[in-house]
């Protein structure tokens, strides 16, 4: 099963490499990874999506917790949560194609953020499967380039991941 694990990490040199190293060292897979400082400059928030059965995910969270740089973590998939990913995508678009692409962008609640005579650049946010669906809707022949941020997430309701 797919899991989204969010980690509060000391914002120290080498901390990120310890997390990434742990995954490769213990043969755990990383589907996506995002990391950036939080409102507290001494902390980074890292979100990793991975997959495995219950025992494997338990080992992953235990080993993450053992890293001295890891302050706190949560497996967001254990409860109700919001998951978002941002994608920038370049599409080949000239003539009649342009209107059709614009309509698709509308349906997916995306935005056109840049354009030239032949290329549209689109921004779209949502859960991963929505982004996948958008790429499929555009069609392979149209897509020139895709830049995805990887999953970021947060629990629903009053629950927080904070110190």
């Amino acid at each position: 099963m797919r899991h989204i694990i969010s980690v509060l990490l000391e914002n120290e040199p080498g901390a990120l490499s310890r997390v990434v190293g742990l995954f490769s060292q213990r043969n755990y897979n990383i589907d996506s990874l995002t990391v950036a400082p939080t409102e507290d400059q001494s902390l980074s928030r890292l979100t990793v999506t991975t997959s495995g059965d219950g025992a494997r995910i338990e080992q992953i969270t235990k080993h993450l917790n053992k890293l001295v740089d890891v302050v706190k973590l949560v497996d967001l998939t254990e409860g109700a949560h919001i998951e978002r990913e941002l994608m920038l995508i370049k599409a080949k678009a000239s003539g009649a194609q342009r209107a059709e692409i614009a309509r698709t962008v509308d349906i997916f609640r995306g935005q056109i953020v840049d354009l030239t005579a032949t290329v549209l650049t689109i921004q779209i946010t949502g859960a991963g499967d929505k982004l996948d669906a958008f790429i499929a809707a555009l069609g392979e022949s149209v897509v020139l380039e895709v830049a995805r941020t990887g999953v970021s997430g947060i629990a629903r309701g009053d629950k927080t991941l904070a110190l």
Binding site: P13, G14, S17, R18, G21, Q25, V68
Partner: peptide
């Protein structure tokens, strides 16, 4: 050294 030893230390400092 921090990189080379990373998988075999409890922790390291630079």
């Amino acid at each position: 050294m921090v990189g080379v030893s990373r998988p075999i230390v409890k922790h390291s400092f630079m």
